[in-house]
Write a protein that binds this DNA or RNA. Structure first.
Lengths: 234, 234
DNA sequence: CGGGACTTTGACTATTCTCAAATTCTGTGG
DNA sequence: CCACAGAATTTGAGAATAGTCAAAGTCCCG
């Protein structure tokens, strides 16, 4: 993987009240008055594809919400093998570990150009003392994170390479663009699915040959979702 | 798998104040007065090995704490393939989904004879309104559950069958009994690791042949943890 | 003692990995 | 706009690994 400088671009203090994805994000349940109590700023920030957002062991003082783009969380085995353990996209919250622990347990990296909101963890703690609706929302986030972990195991770590790739493509296409989805490198594709880069590449080639998918531009995939689903639902 | 009748044995109302594992369980942070506010009963209950605790889609009204034994959470793919997505043992809390959802997303089954405490979910909700220490404890549970999901993916779903088996054996031996651990069926071993029963069996045989483990009684494993660790840490 | 459920083993097949070499893509500087 | 270098992807061939199907062998209980 080509090295990308750790770079970020601050794009201003977030205007949460008028956030376009607000009804899906963490503060969805907050009343106007609660917002006014937010004296600490929530930043918006942009990471280019490939940039590291935080590393394993970094001090955890911030929660992140994905406004756009795609983020991977990576974990390492002692022998250096790395495995992507989660993918986050729009409205997903990550770094929740900051609520509990001092250091992040993952390395977080932008896979596509990515816009994030940064919430200082103590802002959330302050709010929590007052608003118990936020607690419920937070709990729901934990729950969602855990559900995707389960799905990750059953769908992306089980079965043949073909089934795994197909399930991932279907998952990436879920946001409904008529089967269109933006993929990332074959290397990351392999790391998501526990396969080698070569197997990931071969499997994609095979799917193309049979007309299940096409790739008009590199990493722009168009899926025949109906036929793909038949492949794995059987 | 031999069919085990859905059976359970109620063993009385739990005496939480004097619980032997209390300092590790959910209510660790609660004050005496909070306990007195618990008017709804917390049951203790025993499940024999093989018994189902709840099934996918069952109405979720109860949280469970494991007092002893071992529990598996299973999830199914559309084609009927099943995958164990988590193992729970002493002090682990499961069924937290009940706080958020109406139905359980997993099937929970006892792998060994298992003692559980049942907490009605509304008891927890009532307490939460009063005590925000409980919220923190709950959050910590979510966090722990998610960390084990991550570990599951990196350690139990990655690498060769031998590495996966070894990592699981080391994990089971962690409670420190000089490398002793109680295993479950080869079928479940395979389902934990995403391997077939035969591969699980062959891998165990291989480890025995090389003297890394021995099995004095069926499913009672003694591990040479030092040498096993060398196998996977390299 | 017998039968059912698990486990082990064997032989064969299929899949995936490894290592290596070609090919394509991308961004930069001339 | 083109040439080129570095990176990523694709493809190939052979080796290693895991899966499949079938047949013993064990264990456990009644």
């Amino acid at each position: 993987m080509k090295h990308v400088a750790l770079s970020e671009a601050w794009t201003g203090v977030a205007d949460c009240k008028n956030c376009t994805i607000r009804n899906a994000v963490l503060f969805a349940g907050l009343k106007e008055t609660d917002f006014d109590a937010l004296h600490r700023p929530i930043d918006q920030i942009v990471y280019p594809a490939g940039a590291q957002i935080y590393g394993t062991g970094d001090e955890a003082k911030t929660l992140f919400t994905v406004r756009s783009g795609l983020v991977k969380l990576t974990q390492y085995l002692p022998d250096g093998t790395q495995r992507i353990v989660r993918l986050l996209h729009q409205t997903d919250l990550f770094g929740l570990e900051a609520l509990i622990e001092d250091a992040y347990p993952h390395t977080a990296t932008a896979l596509h150009d990515t816009e994030l909101c940064r919430l200082p963890v103590d802002v959330v703690r302050d709010l929590s003392r007052a608003s118990s609706g936020l607690y419920h929302e937070l709990m729901a986030r934990w729950h969602r994170a855990l559900s995707s972990a389960d799905r990750w195991i059953t769908e992306f770590s089980t079965g043949s390479s073909r089934d795994r790739v197909v399930r991932l493509l279907l998952w990436l296409s879920e946001p409904e663009d008529g089967g269109r989805c933006a993929l990332f490198s074959r290397e990351d594709l392999g790391a998501v699915l526990g396969l080698t880069t070569e197997t990931a590449s071969r499997t994609m080639a095979e799917l193309k040959r049979h007309g299940f998918i096409s790739e008009p531009k590199p990493n722009q995939i168009v899926c025949d979702t109906v036929r793909l689903r038949r492949l794995v639902d059987g």
